[in-house]
Amino acid sequence: MRTVLIAALGLTCAMPALAADMPPKPVRLGLCAACHGETGMSQIPGAPNLAGQRLDYLRKALKDYRDGSRDVPLMRAAIGPVSDADLDQLARWYSAQTPQTQAPAQP
């Protein structure tokens, strides 16, 4: 019992430190979350999971969608005229998320 109590106390003390590593939730997360989920786990078929993707990859991909280098009209419309700072916040947010296994689809 004593070991369990010590372990629980240790985890309780560590939680604020773990939360401090998480970037702040981006202001522009809403539209992205509609398809990719707030934590980067896809909400609709065909939308990729973004949780845990490399920061540099996400940052470049978002800029490429915005600038038209990646010609995906839905993504370009969703991103619109977003600043580099906003794109960076989104990339940081999704790269910091932990991927989770998804339950198989029900027939």
Rank of each mutant, 00 (worst) to 15 (best):
M1C: 07
R2E: 15
T3P: 10
L5D: 12
L9S: 12
L9V: 04
G10D: 05
L11E: 08
L11S: 05
C13F: 15
M15I: 10
M15Q: 13
A17L: 15
A19K: 14
D21T: 04
P23W: 09
P23A: 02
P23Y: 08
P23M: 06
P24N: 09
K25Y: 07
P26I: 03
R28H: 11
R28W: 10
G30S: 06
L31N: 08
L31Y: 08
A34D: 06
H36L: 04
G37E: 07
E38C: 00
E38V: 00
M41Y: 07
I44C: 03
P45M: 02
G46E: 08
P48L: 02
N49T: 00
Q53G: 01
Q53R: 14
D56R: 07
K63D: 10
S69L: 12
V72F: 14
V72S: 11
L74C: 02
M75K: 10
R76T: 15
G80C: 08
G80F: 09
G80S: 07
P81C: 03
V82K: 13
S83T: 13
S83C: 07
D84C: 05
D84P: 07
A85R: 12
D88E: 12
Q89V: 00
L90C: 04
L90Y: 06
R92T: 01
W93V: 02
S95M: 05
A96L: 05
Q97H: 05
T98H: 08
P99L: 01
P99M: 03
Q100A: 04
Q100C: 00
T101Y: 04
Q102V: 00
P104Y: 11
P104F: 05
A105H: 08
A105D: 10
A105Q: 13
